[in-house]
């Protein structure tokens, strides 16, 4: 069972991770994009940390929706609508809830993933966030189906996300600005897959 406090910790911790990894994410983006992923994500999550205290007494859905709307209006670029949509779709699953069962947590991540796929029109192996998120959701689902605990499931999800992130290195980008590089995008890890992996890793650490 996941309590509201852990969701708030997740957002707080991810804000700190993004601030810490800002330059790293920007460097990854400089190689195949336009060198702003860390800067934009950090601007958005700094604003989230300002807004979060105003809704911590509300339900998880409201909290995640606040994260979403804040990201949508402050991040810009492609990450703004994509992470904004992830949290928006996730918030709908958590509406009115003060805690989440493991099954609900999977549904929440699944809804976020589907939102990102629709908005970004991306599929697996396009060298995007999907490459970390999609295998993570599958692994989490599979683990719960095998009667593993929530923590074990999340650990599997994070492992799958990390593997998916690393698998983006040899891929040729087919979406976003990196796609214009064609074969020149090979050999670089996707910044969006990296931040998505960090998001799930932080979730695990906040639940543990």
């Amino acid at each position: 069972m996941l309590e509201k406090k852990q969701i708030i910790d997740w957002i707080d911790n991810f804000t700190a991770v993004i601030a810490e990894k800002k330059d790293y994410l920007t460097e990854l983006d400089a190689a195949i994009g336009d060198a702003d992923h860390g800067i934009n994500m950090n601007r958005g999550f700094q604003k989230v940390s300002e807004k979060l205290p105003t809704v911590i007494d509300r339900d998880i859905g409201t909290i995640l929706k606040t994260v979403s709307m804040t990201l949508i209006s402050t991040v810009g670029g492609a990450s703004g609508p994509l992470y904004g949509t992830f949290f928006l779709k996730a918030s709908a699953v958590a509406a009115q809830k003060e805690e989440l069962t493991p099954e609900e947590l999977v549904q929440l991540l699944q809804a976020g993933l589907e939102g990102v796929m629709y908005r970004g029109k991306a599929q697996l192996e396009d060298k995007t966030m999907i490459d970390a998120l999609s295998p993570a959701v599958d692994a989490f689902k599979q683990s719960l189906a095998n009667n593993n605990s929530e923590l074990e499931g999340l650990q599997k999800a994070v492992d799958a996300a990390e593997e998916g992130m690393k698998k983006t290195i040899p891929l040729i980008a087919r979406k976003g600005r990196a796609s214009y590089l064609g074969e020149r995008s090979m050999g670089h890890q996707d910044p969006g897959a990296t931040s998505s992996y960090l998001m799930l890793k932080t979730l695990l650490e906040s639940v543990r």
């Binding site: 336009d34 702003d36 949508i72 810009g76």
Partner: peptide
């Protein structure tokens, strides 16, 4: 206008 080389936001 968005930030430099960054798409503007929906709001």
């Amino acid at each position: 206008p968005g930030e430099v080389f960054t798409a503007p936001t929906p709001d």
